[in-house]
Amino acid sequence: MMETERTYRSEAKRNRRILLLLLTTLLLLSVLFLFAGRYPKGGLTFPSDLATNHLMQNIMLNVRLPRILLALIAGAILSAAGFTFQMLFSNPLVEPGFLGVSQGSAFGAALVIVAGTNNSAMVQVSATFFGLLALGASYFLAKRFRFGGWLLRLVLSGIAVSAIFSSALGVVKLVAEPTKDLQDITFWMMGGLWNSNWKQILTIMPVVLVCLAILFSYRWRMNLLSLQEKSAYSVGLNPKVDRTVLLVVATVGTTLTISLTGLIGWVGLIMPHLARKLFGSDSKAALPGSMVMGSLFLLLCDTVGRTLLPTEIPIGLLTSFIGAIIFIVILSLKHQGGKA
């Protein structure tokens, strides 16, 4: 008996060590990448050049630092939200995008852009509202469908809701002013952190940090919500309430973030998978692991995207490309009866 307790504790200790290692790497890379960019020339800036170059100081503090911070926050919340959706729907292949949240948010943001409102707070509110609306619609439709099991119905309703918002987005794009609004909307669809500045980040950061804190504090209980509803109820949970709270928190965090960054796909799907490979399926360790890995992934993708070529590569394109490759590899190597 003591042996198992020791094993359980040593595994927890091992997970903490890996998490600490990842966090340290994240911190070091964040500092290192402050010096990486294409000004004054491609590559790393030497700290000695910094003292005399005021423009460089300005770029580091007001362009790169908020951008890196946004990459960290966005990576953490997109990954945590994906993880949460997977646990709540007891399906390792679900993420907010599958239930129409991303398309709903994109439509919400595009609508405000076309309406001529240049207010980023309005874009955020609208993106969040339509993201939640899409989630609610997917959930409601899945309840109404009379075909297949709950998960299949949910995925099907998500596809339908996504398609409806996609076509609505198409209409908005058709009427958008081509030289300005259409470009802004296109930015949305490809995802990118180039637009980040302190003011915008500080608008979303408090709420997103609260969302992250709530998801983090629920990390062990999330395991229970992956059980069938009756089982979760029998061990003292109120699964309907817990699921609703966590879904809303994950969706608000996601939509607020993508209202700034545009659509960044695959992070919420792939990072939780990798985290489970590294930390095990217990969300007590895998959720924080997933957050840190999401931050690391977006930081790396964004840095590659802004430094590799003279023209910036949109981060959404990179995350989709790399994410899809990782996905293929994971599925090809999958063991344990195809379970996550």
């Binding site: 359980y8 009756k230 089982s231 003292g236």
Partner: peptide, 29 residues
């Protein structure tokens, strides 16, 4: 939950919890 426990007919396992992690779920109440 502390007074009455349920053993359902079956459970779907979609995540690879260890038996110990899974049994620990009973401690939730």
């Amino acid at each position: 939950g502390r007074n009455i426990a349920l053993v359902p007919q079956s459970e779907h396992y979609n995540f690879s919890f260890t038996l110990l992690e899974y049994t620990l779920f009973g401690r939730a109440p």
